[in-house]
Design a protein around this nucleic acid. Sequence first.
DNA 1: AGCCAGGGTCTGC
DNA 2: GCAGACCATGGC
Length: 278
Amino acid sequence: MTSVKAGGDIKIHTPACFALGLTLDCGQAFRWTENPDGSFSGVAGGRFLRIKQDVDTLTFFDTAEGDFNSFWRGYFDLERDYSAIVASYECDKQLSRACREGYGIRILRQEPWEALCSFIISANNNIPRIKGIISRLCESFGTRLTEGAYTFPAPERLASLSPGELDVIRAGFRNRYIIDAAQKVSSGGVSLERIAAADFEDAKKELLTVKGVGEKVAQCTLLYGFNRLEAFPVDVWIRRVINELYPAGLPECIRGTEGIAQQYLFNYMRTNYKEEKQ
DNA sequence: AGCCAGGGTCTGC
DNA sequence: GCAGACCATGGC
């Protein structure tokens, strides 16, 4: 069976402060892979996308205009003025440097359920392995879109599984956490709609009722799944940032967009640490 | 071989 | 509230 192309390519002028590769490979999303030609392929919102950034052009291959406007525009946060946000970080020297080195990183607007489930899997784990587990989760329990591309399984699909049935994804002790999250979300015991409408503290409190969700996973879910830019997840890398760069406290200029600053600092510390080890 | 990874839970004080 | 053991897995 041959697939019918739904639409042509969409080309837009690359927005200011937009770096595709850094954004898709900075530890906030786990579903994108780089192709030999420099484009990226991935699945989000139940849609497969191949996308490539050239000097001045961003190409969404084989994408319908309706999908671009109703989904991808929001997913890549194209309407937000990142140049202004990054400029507001000039109050701090080290943060400014982090912004230069990671210039163009954006916070993706991922789906709440995928973000919650992905960051439950991220606990005490490393990024390459997180990607592998999520890939196997989608391949085993998602819906096939095209060759090698599967949707992220809905909570309803995972809620009826036993931990043993999840062994194929090799998530280890996280199996029962994934299932608990799927059960609470699909039953409405935890409501993603209510979380989206709640203030920050109430939203976090509701997320913390899920097993396997502590402070850090809740902050990640709110930042990446609900676009709460005031969230500030602290993992081991950000702990190093705080200890080594900001022992007296974080700079004032990040107030309101702490999550974006956090992403630049995360990238900065990880990149420099890797170079140090070579 | 042992340590680490976008942590959290559970128990005991 | 806080420390410490424990949790699966795989890369280095």
